[in-house]
């Protein structure tokens, strides 16, 4: 019974991926992609990884889907302006060898991986045992949170830096003259929906963050839900992205600032970088996580809202069209 379910799920996942790749219509690919995220969340459940299922449900099926829809809408909106612009055109008919070579390399990749999975040696080191052993000293009960914010917290610190860099690049890309989004009037239905839906989203986000210390959940999942709530608000026409620039910057960086400050200030007591004093480890981790949740939510939202509006000003286009 178990196996039948898993096999069906795996095949559905592969079909879904194939659907994403071979949809001629871009929008169909996007919907397939959203479905793919959902199926992947189910796969994580079957792999005993509810944390990943949470993250995938919030990010894969939620945020990334919205980003993609937004991008496709952008393409079609712009397409109306560009007469004869190449939309979803993959170029001239390819040569025979350029058909065979990709098939060949994909098959090779699959066979190599198959072998690597099949003839894998038994690992001589068992990290899960070590994690279980050190869990009492980590300050949290949930092993994944312990790995993310204590044992391998340096990775997490750098990862927040990665997110922050992405936002900085997004800011740098933003045109200097940002124009108000066209047609952003408040829709009464959306308005009502958001009034009912956003508060529970925020509550669930905070709950997931809080749950992270003893069961699946934590800063990333909470942050992703927070970001989704913010995206929802923006879609519903609330102009929350028009926060003061400096305020937004501080909010984006707050999690990183707190993390870095805690990581460094423990060194005053002679401890190595990122060593939480054992007596307050749990509290410190929760504090950092709370700040991270806030910042991650803001960062992910910001990556969404920095995108140019679907109907972009076409002033810069004139020269381009003359060129062609």
């Amino acid at each position: 019974m178990n196996l039948a379910f898993d096999v069906l799920l795996g095949i559905a996942l592969l079909l879904c991926a194939a659907g994403v790749f071979y949809s001629r219509d871009l929008f169909r690919a996007v919907v397939m992609f959203i479905a793919f995220g959902l199926l992947l969340a189910l796969v994580w459940v079957r792999l005993d990884a509810p944390d990943l299922a949470l993250a995938e449900a919030a990010i894969g099926a939620g945020l990334t889907g919205v980003l993609m829809i937004d991008a496709v809408a952008h393409l079609s909106a712009k397409n109306a302006h560009h007469q004869g612009a190449q939309f979803d055109q993959t170029g001239a008919r390819p040569q025979l060898w350029s058909r065979i070579l990709p098939v060949f390399s994909a098959v090779i990749i699959f066979i190599l991986l198959l072998g690597a999975i099949w003839w894998r040696p038994d690992a001589p080191v068992s990290l899960p045992d070590l994690v279980a052993e050190s869990l009492p000293e980590s300050g949290v009960e949930h092993p994944i949170t312990a790995v993310l914010l204590n044992f391998r917290s340096y990775d997490t610190l750098l990862e927040i830096a990665v997110l922050l860099v992405a936002v900085v690049v997004a800011m740098a890309l933003k045109p200097d003259t940002s124009e108000p989004e066209a047609g952003n009037s408040k829709d009464p239905i959306l308005h009502g929906l958001s009034a009912r839906l956003v508060p529970p989203m925020l509550v669930v986000g905070v709950y997931i963050l809080w749950a992270g210390s003893y069961m699946p959940g934590g800063a990333f999942q909470g942050g992703a839900i927070l970001a989704a709530a913010l995206v929802f608000l923006k879609l519903a026409g609330f102009g929350i992205e028009r926060l003061a620039d400096s305020l937004l910057r501080i909010g984006l960086a707050l999690g990183f600032i707190v993390f870095l400050t805690v990581a460094t200030s423990v060194m005053i007591g002679g401890r190595p970088f990122l060593t939480y004093p054992e007596s307050v480890a749990g509290e410190l981790i929760f504090f950092i996580e709370a700040m991270l949740t806030f910042s991650i939510g803001l960062i992910l939202f910001s990556l969404f809202s920095q995108a140019p509006p679907p109907v972009a000003p076409t002033s810069s286009l004139q020269g381009e069209q003359d060129e062609r």
Binding site: L38, A58, G62, G65, L193, P200, M201, I208, Q221, F232
Partner: peptide
């Protein structure tokens, strides 16, 4: 989470 967030793609 899924129930809450699935609606966003629709919006």
């Amino acid at each position: 989470v899924l129930a809450l967030l699935a609606v966003i793609a629709m919006v």
